[in-house]
Design a binder for these strands. Structure first.
Lengths: 343, 343
DNA sequence: TTGAAAGCGCTAACAA
DNA sequence: TTGTTAGCGCTTTCAA
């Protein structure tokens, strides 16, 4: 288990490569960054020298001289939430095999913390930034607006995006789910939500408006908690819902964890799903469709959001102003399954 | 949605702050990095100047001059796997309110890819590195051994760790689970596993050895697939298990997704759990204990691994050689629940 | 197509 | 406790 501390001087520099290749340092630099503008002959010599010396460029020196890095900052409100895990996956797939790498900041649903992270990331001169909300503090927003790099806001689709945005209409998605419950004949729908961040709050408001407009609003059927979402919490919330409003006949859950928890709680109480209680979920992570009964859900395009966001960002980094459609609506899809399918 | 590109020259430098405060640049630098060695008076002037100018240090310049950064590299094999989500959480909690930040590399269960990431991270002169395996390529291992920064290997506990390690005995954990199935009277236990990475493979081997030693090994009851793990996959694997070995009376799942999927599949087939089939899971993520029936599982200390790893790393960064216990075994715990509790 | 010179913004090493 | 000097390894600028 011993370990040697390797001498710093071991590591070859541009100048070493230049000497080895018999060219100047700048030619080596160019060979690495834009081989096409270097003569075939010089390029081959340089490449051989790099190979021989095992040279790796120093990103710090490069960042200092060029005033930019290959870092892409990605701010998410949570790392445990499966929703963002899927977004991350899309983003990572997109940067792979590019010279960029992603740095994640987790602001834990705190706008203030997010502001600090924006400031911190910006001080690193990132090539681009992806942020997961439109709910920055005024100062956070100002920082993004004046950022010297492209910025993509993801998940939501709202007016006044800072630079570019990719997402879907969260309220429309909730409305779709609520409409489906009505279509199935449910008349006393409830709503379960944990972790009342601004986005969850907007979805709740969307549900409320829809229910009111359709004459099925019952305030005692709306159960929320500021605590984090979890399967266990879904069970608790359903319990509370039934104790407050025993006549509830359907429930729209603000995410899959809650829906699965509610389903399990229904099972424990011997409440038949979908006959006595319809359950509709939001997001549709993989497990939902494998429950018994399979959960109806509004599928949100999480991974695609990640993919498109990084795509737009890379294009814009390559050439500022080159992205035409700067605001993408990826939509959402209602997946009708057994948990709302009653005879 | 307009955006201005802020002039680079806008950004004040150390020299600007020094001039504003009427001291030298190095005094400003010291005020920031080690305020305690600067006189009260100088410190106050500098702090006021920083405030007035809105100065933020340039990490690239700092990295170049000092040959180190505030980056901690964290290599994980997957971002979607809940196991690592918990580890991440522990790590992020630990770096918060320090000057360090974490950069994640996802090597997608490919040792070759991991080697590339190690090389890439190392070129950034990180303050420390956390890697999620002991299964590096020889070259990857060599890179870690000669890394000029502390390294923590997490999850597994094996001989010959490179520098420091935090984990638990994965084979002992599996053995514990298998023993429990025998204790419950199950006699024909099966094993389900997806994504056969080296660690999953070692657990399978552990199960095999244990089963053989106890005279309950049935090769046709061991079902594996190289594909990624998921709830749906758990269902498929159980299906295959029953078609190959209909007399199977219990199943040990290599993680929670598979266990939940197996439970659902059992439900679909009207196989009673735990009476006709005992199910034991591995890892014990939150949802498992809320299933109906609740899943028995070996709980692995994922979050704590993250916490301890970052703790050790930070201590070692602060002072090389200061960490006494360089190899921590955090153990695992069998959580006995309904899915194996038969009359 | 290539190169020389001059920094980028900070810190290490030494001196006062 | 504070300052001076000399880079860190790269890229930019300008010239050839």
């Amino acid at each position: 288990m011993g370990r040697k501390t390797r001498m710093i001087s071991d590591r070859p520099t541009l100048a070493d490569v230049a000497q080895e290749a018999g060219v100047s340092a700048i030619t080596v630099s160019r060979t690495i960054r834009s081989p096409e503008i270097v003569s075939e002959r010089a390029r081959r010599k340089v490449e051989a020298a790099i190979e021989r010396l095992g040279y790796t460029p120093d990103p710090a020196a490069s960042a200092l001289a060029s005033r930019t890095t290959s870092t892409i900052g990605l701010l998410v409100p949570s790392l445990t939430n499966n929703v963002f895990a899927d977004v991350l996956r899309g983003v990572y797939e997109g940067v792979e095999s590019t010279r960029f790498f992603v740095q994640i900041g987790n602001y834990r649903y705190s706008a203030l913390h997010e502001e600090g992270l924006i400031r911190n990331f910006l001080s690193q001169k990132p090539a681009g930034l992806i942020v997961s909300s439109t709910d920055q503090t005024p100062e956070g927003r100002r920082l993004l607006e004046t950022a010297p790099c492209p910025v993509v806001q993801i998940m939501d689709l709202r007016d006044g995006a800072v630079d570019m945005s990719v997402g879907f209409d969260q309220v429309a998605a909730v409305r779709k789910a609520a409409q489906h419950l009505l279509d199935c004949g449910y008349r006393r729908p409830g709503f379960l939500s944990a972790r009342m961040d601004p986005r969850a709050q907007r979805r709740l408001n969307g549900f409320r408006d829809f229910a009111a407009a359709n004459g099925v609003l019952g305030e005692d059927r709306i159960i929320t908690t500021p605590q984090p979402s979890s399967v266990g919490m879904g069970g608790h919330l359903l319990e509370q819902l039934f104790s407050q409003a025993p006549d509830t006949d359907a429930v729209l859950c603000n995410n899959d964890d809650l829906a699965v928890g509610a389903l399990m709680e229904a099972k424990r109480r011997h409440v038949a799903v979908p006959e006595q209680l319809g359950i509709c979920s939001y997001n549709d992570i993989e497990m939902s469709r494998h429950m018994v009964p399979a959960l109806t859900a509004v599928a949100t395009p999480r991974r695609e959001i990640g993919q498109r966001a990084i795509e737009m960002l890379l294009a814009e980094i390559a050439e500022r102003g080159s992205v035409r459609d700067r605001h993408l609506d990826l939509g959402s899809e209602l997946m009708i399954r057994e948990s709302t399918r009653r005879a």
